[in-house]
Design a protein around this nucleic acid. Sequence first.
DNA 1: ACATGCTGTCTGAAATATCAGACAATAACG
DNA 2: CGTTATTGTCTGATATTTCAGACAGCATGT
Lengths: 266, 266
Amino acid sequence: MSDSATGLIETEAGAEPRNGERRRGIDRVIMLLEALLRHRAPMRVGDIAKMIGAPRSTTYEIVNSLLEAEMLENVGTEGYVYFGRAMHLFGWAYSHHNAHYRRIIETLDKMAAETGETVQLCGLRGNKYIVLDCRDSSGPFRISSDVGVEVPIPWTASGRLLLGHMSEEEVKDFIPPGDYKLPDGRVIAPAEFFSDVALARQQGFSETAALADRFTWCMAAPIRDGHGAINKTLCFVLPVDTAETRRSELLALLCERARGLSLAGS
Amino acid sequence: MSDSATGLIETEAGAEPRNGERRRGIDRVIMLLEALLRHRAPMRVGDIAKMIGAPRSTTYEIVNSLLEAEMLENVGTEGYVYFGRAMHLFGWAYSHHNAHYRRIIETLDKMAAETGETVQLCGLRGNKYIVLDCRDSSGPFRISSDVGVEVPIPWTASGRLLLGHMSEEEVKDFIPPGDYKLPDGRVIAPAEFFSDVALARQQGFSETAALADRFTWCMAAPIRDGHGAINKTLCFVLPVDTAETRRSELLALLCERARGLSLAGS
DNA sequence: ACATGCTGTCTGAAATATCAGACAATAACG
DNA sequence: CGTTATTGTCTGATATTTCAGACAGCATGT
């Protein structure tokens, strides 16, 4: 953050930054919002402009429109902006419009209340894993993870389940090679990952211990849609030293609830 | 307006629908999202076009862009669209970026769990009242109200608190005259409303019984910001026939928690 | 059978939104 | 003190996007 702007420019997916190109306002808006989501903190207009590769004058124009609509709002007095109240309302409308999602959220609440552990709802976004919603542990040992942040699929237990419908070949094509490398430098052998995926499919759940970080034990169970496909998973994020007896209790609960949320294969 | 779909065209605030006018894509997007929020259900592209007063061809163009960005998504197979997953992520980012809001949400969760009643976080949007977030009662008697729907201020207990900083004159100018009329046809005398506002300010809480509808008892307590102003309120929505003893318990809890969420006047 | 209403996709043309760049203010730094 | 970066606002030109309307396809109703 200390430096000027180096490293701010994260390459835009699918967008050729060919200079002298003119872009549509709507596309700029989309890029802007996604950049803000990735950045996960209020940004200044100048930095946004760099991040989305737009001229400053254009960026000001757009930001002011979005501010007026409360889709963005000013944070602090130094010209920082972040998502605004309208986004919250739109997002709420999204997550409550369908009965299935509402049931899922209720279950999330209930499980968090009953167990006091961190519970997450997870899914895929493109070829990455994201947390769709979560309830953080109430205890002092809080492993908070951000909703919407993209994470390589092989780092996660849920990811193993979410690829269950793919053949080994498809998985190989789907996962970017770099995604097998863990944050601490270790590399997961693709073959090992493929067999994990197969195991997860067969067991109907998936667990990882100290994978993406050294402190967590993750367990995931599938939520199936009307066609039996796995779109989402329910998971617990536990301290890695959780006793085996409690872990198996929680795993049983997780599987039961996830099954309860699955739609009967019509 | 003469055409078939009468009633669909809700007049756009601050937008002159002068024909033959050209509008910016960004503005169309904003109108579209707000229209969808007001409508509270998936819509077809043709109806959206009518609602925001845009040509169909333009609307298709915009909707397709937003679909691709997952800001909208298809619902069902009949061409209906509604908010998409990206909106949920943006909204989540909004509501968790600031520590105060996070504390409020935790309190909301806790109160709902402890009491089993419907708890809401409320605020103003322009000169209307809206629910910003809520936890619905777990009981069979469920009074669900939608986050983000605009409601006339005089219909609500929270509204009386949220106007606490205004003089009688200011309140009079602020509330649209039609907003004193309740859904069942009764009309609140403005003078009575002003004194309610004064009473709420003095008491530090506000209650309404069977006001906006015949079945609910609402109680609201103020959450003050760093300057002592009331931006948001915490409230319970109870069945009207809740026993007086329980009501006063809940009111005490409400006031205590709201005070706990208020920021010390710096 | 026809008439009517809708959807979703294209087209060309005209209006304008995006752009590069200039500008004054302010801040940080040696 | 000058030098170098900022921010936020304006400007005018042109490349682009919005728009009206036509089109085929598929319903529905009479």
